[in-house]
Design a protein around this nucleic acid. Structure first.
Lengths: 164, 164
DNA sequence: TCAATCGTTTAAAACGTTCTAAACGATAAT
DNA sequence: ATTATCGTTTAGAACGTTTTAAACGATTGA
């Protein structure tokens, strides 16, 4: 590849990495995907080692993660016994799926969390003082607010799904 | 506070921490906010040290961060020269604001990133081979997809804003 | 059968982030 | 004035995560 193009890509990869990092996901896996996404042909593990100057192990690990996400697939290249990888270029689908499942998981976690907390504070009722009961009542009101918010989040997710 | 209540809260705090962590933000700051959110009265730095079994420094640092977010405010308690803190209980507002500004920032980053990348690959044009030109053309098509997606994200954000 | 070429696994190193303990300056009480 | 009580700052410790290099097993080719 032309040198200036590679330099341009490198800058791009750096930004992609930062962006991904700020979303709480690994920089490197994002760069890896980006390289495959921009490539006009499938790349081998060794190509990626060379392109990203990272260890085989690291790339192997993260490629498998990308496969698990359905973001990358293994393709056969005639005449080579290496594995070659190719990005699924439907970025929108990938991002939306990932966000959707992520949000749903979190909403589920919140529900579980709330249920457990409520069960615990209620089970303590028999041994509570009057003061404690007041506190617990206040808890329930505050928890209600959180529940309202998750309900809204669910609704918003449904709307967003239609939009995309 | 009643012992069982405290244990219940501790479990809750643990879950909150994990949840926050999975969003890429600090566990501890989430627990800190949660304690203040659930508390029926403002708490001092020392109260929080005792409640969370963490160092003063850590709490001081994270309280200031919460203040910066508008999630917590310093209140005066008659008869004490300590600082007391109180959670802003409008969780919905807090979460929505934080998400909104976060998403907007990211969208901006993507735009900047794309602009820079395009500028770089175009500036290289004069020294490019025919093959390079083909690659660049393919880049532009792929970048277009990303731009479409961010545009959609902006639109979705606008809709969500109305909903909340 | 032996050697070379793969991708994966693993134990340890490197790294950034978070946390702590101690020192500090500021303010208030004695 | 001196001491006690605050919150903040900071240098280093602790921690989890990520990355590497090397070893490995499996597969292909000679």
């Amino acid at each position: 590849m032309h040198n200036k193009l590679e330099m341009a890509q490198d800058k791009f990869l750096g930004s992609i990495g930062k962006l991904a990092g700020s979303f709480g996901l690994n920089d490197f896996i994002a760069k890896l995907y980006a390289v495959l996404y921009l490539s006009d042909k499938p790349l081998s593990l060794d190509d990626l080692v060379e392109r990203l100057k990272a260890s085989k192990g690291n790339i192997s690990l993260n490629i498998r993660e990308l496969e698990r996400w359905g973001a990358v697939k293994n393709v056969w290249v005639k005449g080579s016994r290496k594995d070659f990888y190719e990005a699924d270029t439907d970025i929108k689908k990938l991002v939306v799926n990932k966000l959707k499942s992520g949000i749903q998981k979190r909403i589920g976690q919140v529900s579980d969390m709330m249920a457990e907390f409520k069960a615990l504070i209620n089970s303590a009722e028999s041994e509570m003082t009057e003061e404690d009961r007041k506190i617990v009542k206040a808890y329930h009101e505050k928890l209600k607010k959180i529940e309202d918010m998750t309900a809204l989040a669910s609704k918003a997710l449904g709307l967003a799904e239609k939009l995309f």
